[in-house]
Nucleic acid binder design. Structure first.
Lengths: 328, 328
DNA sequence: CTGTTAGCGCTTTCAG
DNA sequence: CTGAAAGCGCTAACAG
């Protein structure tokens, strides 16, 4: 039990007085091809020796690990973690395990992780990419395993993509508020050009709104009160009714509550909406109408596509799956 | 490039016209033991063949994967993800990679994951356990790899534990509010007996407060308005000043904002505090005094201990590391 | 029902 | 400076 060298199949075979082939069969569940006496002896030996199969050796032969890498942009985002839960649910039902990696919104890290996944025996990859270029990823993923892209769109993607209807829902939401008289839209967002998701949302808003202002906030460093003041200014310096449209839940949570408390967001002269994946904001102010994505479903869908490729060994059948977000 | 069988070291050796031993040396950075001509030839061949080393084969020999499993209780918690980031920062500086697994607060899943980690060639494990019993874990982890426990305490732990000073900070916080006249404490929490962390926090509160009520909320299913009403009742039915003490950030975020809006939490007759890891609550109401843990530091500390064991091959030197939380 | 044997792709002595 | 060869622990024919 102490520091004994870890037992191998050979040790088990010796103790059970059978051949290693029989042990292997036992391990792989071919119990029908063996007397119950033998099976019992092997079972005993395994327990006695505290034997645990060496997965590396097995992988080397079977060329499969039953593990799928899930690489997300930021595990601090509820979106990413919920996505992973959706992925895991499907994977596990199919006897695979998902392992989660975090690029931390860092393109350099994304490269490293893709190389890591490439180097290790993962059977598949589900990726929420930072890059917009499929070519870059292909260059690093030399091994030929199934890949599914989620959330962000890639240029010339050879892989199936699972995305939200960002453009459409941003547009229809904006129209909805326009109809209610909010003709002035203030877009509150991280640097738009950093993610395809944001670009599409922004495009959707512009397609519907007549008067759009943009307030870009740096994810890492920003001055809270300064942004706050700019928001107040944008809301008050016009006679139009203003809709503050946060492209990301975080910005809603950071700035809208104080604007509400201070009376700027009064749901009359000004209101707010956002892409929001949790129920936190709604708990704070139930009157907010927000756009909800379904990251869990997106993950599950992505995993389904991946598993299909894994078991069928065929190329993706669909190139884009859209999981709609809804205003509610 | 298409469906060509993945190249092996043998192929590289053949193309470069050297032995596989030389290729192996090249791969492992022993460039000093080879002429630069040879190195160049090999480099060429590798690129031409799109060769990527088979990590399973390597692991089989070296018995190391340079990967550490991090098993957390719930990746939706900011605490868990921030912990992972702390872990990763240290791991990566030491040339290891952290991979994240989620038990989803499900003891059954925890067992499965521990077995999974046991079966695969992870070099170490950082665990935020659900179980309180070290024995259970030891039974499943037959392979003898270094383990570090974080956040929750284990009974009779053979491994180093990295924890917060839950008891002390809960007690001192309660005292702090007692001194300000809040003699009635309402503890808002998930089922206390489910986690050692909560038990300690609760004990700390009881040690300092004279009049304590407990409101246990089920993580999965609970009636928002019903809990809300109970809170209101508890606050108003006494003449004492009340402190609502949320043992977890989530409950603060779920219930306190509406209590503030409705004027129940007025920072006079009633106030609130909580263990809180993000800045969301403070953005909502800057006057709240909250207890902040440092999950990132906890993760980093745990990883440091682990790496130390990994490289030194010796048993843990400390049995408990306390990362204090602070009220601010 | 069970054993023998040939590798999987790589690292690592040990010789040159 | 480079190569030959012996495994690492396991699976999968192929025999019996």
């Amino acid at each position: 039990m102490e520091n004994r060298k870890t037992a191998t199949m050979k040790d088990v075979a010796a103790l059970a007085d059978v051949s290693i082939a029989t042990v292997s069969r036992f391990l792989n569940g071919n119990l029908d091809r063996m007397s119950s006496t033998t099976a019992a002896k092997i079972k005993d030996a395994i327990e006695k020796l505290n034997y645990v199969p060496n997965s590396a050796a097995r992988q080397m032969i079977t060329k499969a690990s039953k593990m799928v890498a899930v690489v997300v942009a930021n595990i601090d985002d509820y979106f990413s973690t919920e996505l992973f839960k959706g992925v895991s649910s499907i994977l596990e039902a199919n006897n695979y395990t998902g392992v989660l990696f975090d690029t931390d919104s860092n393109p350099e890290r994304e490269r490293q992780l893709i190389q890591l996944v490439n180097d290790h025996t993962y059977d598949g990859l589900i990726l929420q990419p930072l890059t917009e270029s499929a070519a870059t990823i292909e260059a690093d993923m030399k091994r030929d395993i199934p890949i599914v892209v989620v959330d962000r769109e890639l240029i010339h993607s050879p892989w199936t993509q699972v995305v939200t209807n960002n453009y459409e829902v941003a547009k229809s939401t904006t129209s909805h508020f326009m109809a209610a008289g909010y003709t002035h839209v203030v877009v509150l967002t991280s640097k738009i050009s950093m993610a395809s998701t944001r670009e599409e949302r922004y495009a959707g808003i512009k397609a519907a709104a007549s008067h759009v202002d943009v307030l870009e906030v740096s994810e890492e460093s920003y001055n809270h009160t300064q942004v706050h003041q700019k928001l107040v200014k944008l809301i008050t310096e016009t006679t139009e009714k203003t809709l503050v449209f946060a492209l990301k839940e975080r910005w809603l949570l950071e700035f809208i509550p104080s604007l509400i408390v201070q009376g700027y967001i009064d749901h009359d002269q000004a209101t707010a909406t956002a892409f929001s994946d949790t129920s936190t904001a709604r708990n704070i102010e139930p009157r907010l109408q927000l756009i909800s994505q379904d990251p869990y479903l997106m993950g599950a869908s992505a995993a389904e596509v991946l598993v299909d490729q894994l078991v069928s060994h065929r190329r993706p059948t669909q190139d884009k799956i859209i999981i709609p977000a809804t205003l509610r």
